[in-house]
Design a protein around this nucleic acid. Structure first.
Ligand SMILES: [Mn+2]
Ligand SMILES: [Mn+2]
Ligand SMILES: [Zn+2]
Ligand SMILES: [Zn+2]
Lengths: 143, 143
DNA sequence: GAGCAGATTAGACAAAGTCCAAAGATTGAA
DNA sequence: TTCAATCTTTGGACTTTGTCTAATCTGCTC
């Protein structure tokens, strides 16, 4: 696994490499995505980008998230029926989902193995295997 | 695994057992859910119930789906970001998801095993492990 | 019958996401 | 530098999924 730097010049180079213009808005959004916080919703990205000052519209956030997703820079996590979450971690990995709080934690795919998956119908190919471990606080752990 | 009959009298008994009244609408919805088609969205259930004649409102379909889900008669499948699907198969099982067509197929949990799941934080308990195999038609199989 | 609890309903509402047409920004050739 | 083509951004309309509410309906029991 190669370490990627996500400072401004690196992100500019990354976008250029994918043939898209490194606009101010895209850089702001990239900075939010590739920063500390993982698994953000579009709304959360919008809020973070515009935190200090309004810099980006809702439409651009959605445009950019879909663009980055198509380029493989981020991936979608489908676990909360209310909204898609965007994940800058594109290494194969899985998720622990706290159904009470909505909190999501990564599970490294390396440690984990699945056996017994059925044969695919001919002509079909696997795009990915997503494992979601749904957890909650146990009865005992609550007062 | 116990075979369950889903004819009208059995469903009536099932609802009574859970302390809810077997109304006409609930029976119609149960009939759609427990019939041949699995993994239906709320909208599809509504359409099927009202196919021959209008019998149920949108609100009642949602009420009933949530009620059945709370009673454990059906479960939600979170795989399509656009809508929740409802699954009358409450046996532990997983899903194959065709990302192009949206088609969903069950994968029996018996044949399948996952190893290497991390320890849960203390006080947390697993509610379920969902595995989604995302597949699509291979390049080769398309013209 | 009256009274009561629970169920159904139309339609208002909210949130996520897409779409569009207008305006703004970049680019690169002349 | 200028100009036009192209790409990008944007407000806001729109769509879809799902929830909520207040009014009505249904089915009991007395
Ligand atoms: Mn900023
Ligand atoms: Mn019918
Ligand atoms: Zn992740
Ligand atoms: Zn299923």
């Amino acid at each position: 696994m190669e370490a990627i730097s996500y400072d401004r010049p690196s992100v500019i180079a990354l976008l250029r490499k994918h043939g898209i213009a490194p606009t101010h808005q895209r850089l702001e959004i990239a900075q939010v995505l590739f920063g500390r916080c993982h698994h953000l919703s579009a709304d959360q990205v919008l809020a973070k980008v515009n935190e200090s000052q309004a810099e980006t519209s809702k439409a651009t956030v959605y445009n950019t998230l879909n663009l980055f997703r198509d380029l493989g820079l981020i991936r979608e996590v489908i676990v909360d029926p209310k909204r898609v979450l965007y994940d800058p971690n594109t290494e194969p990995h899985h998720h622990l989902y706290n159904v009470d709080t909505g909190e999501i934690t990564d599970i490294d795919a390396g440690a984990l193995s699945v056996s017994g998956l059925p044969e695919l119908p001919t002509g079909m190919v696997t795009e990915g295997v997503d494992i979601i471990v749904r957890v909650r606080a146990s009865e005992a752990s609550l007062g």
